[in-house]
Nucleic acid binder design. Sequence first.
DNA 1: ATATTTTATCGTAAAAATACGATTAAAAAA
DNA 2: TTTTTTAATCGTATTTTTACGATAAAATAT
Lengths: 113, 113
Amino acid sequence: MQMSIDKSSEFTQAEQDLAAFAKAIGHPARIAILKILATKNACICGEIVNVLPLAQATVSQHLKALKEVGLIQGAIDGPKSCYCINWVTFNNFKTQFNTVFSGIENSNNTCCQ
Amino acid sequence: MQMSIDKSSEFTQAEQDLAAFAKAIGHPARIAILKILATKNACICGEIVNVLPLAQATVSQHLKALKEVGLIQGAIDGPKSCYCINWVTFNNFKTQFNTVFSGIENSNNTCCQ
DNA sequence: ATATTTTATCGTAAAAATACGATTAAAAAA
DNA sequence: TTTTTTAATCGTATTTTTACGATAAAATAT
């Protein structure tokens, strides 16, 4: 008996992309990281580790997740690592989101009450 | 040796709430469901099951996830279930998102390249 | 009254995510 | 040159998510 095979590829690329972005920001630690980067413009990894209630390895893992979907980018600065938000990707996500859900939201929706 | 205890409560309520919303839409099936509901206003569960490449039990599970964060609401309609988007919650999510990430995105960000 | 339709829930298997200590690698400081 | 600092990666334990068959519950249809 086989179970739990990934069905993601059965959906459209747009649906997969949007879901991937949403998933990436779907953890409080990653929200916190993005908030820090949004206010500080650029930030050394160590500063993020100091602020978050997580181990260095875990923060690195979260940074990697954000980097993989392109929401942040990093550059090596000596022995340190500097991160910042990639606003192009970020705004692209916003646009995709608003496009997909620009349905009938202005209708007086009184269904399913 | 204990590991992997949930650290979510160490973050702010706003961070947790926003992450919960993002997590809820962080799967292509749930994006697809929201898209259907956004265009159809209201929709019977069975129609969603027919359109998605997933088993009925799995779709029900995804619907439950969306309902739990308040993004959709459902009403029993005879033996059927009618679902629709809760636009109040939905727009609240949009607002929260835009508030948190209204940082310095207009700056000419050339860091971390 | 019985059968059918519809959907939620239960049980469970498999996969992915979360978390951290330990280690590695690479630059800087001593 | 050796030590220290910084951060990525590895290994691994635990938890959560994803997926589905089977069952239950509740209304409709026969």
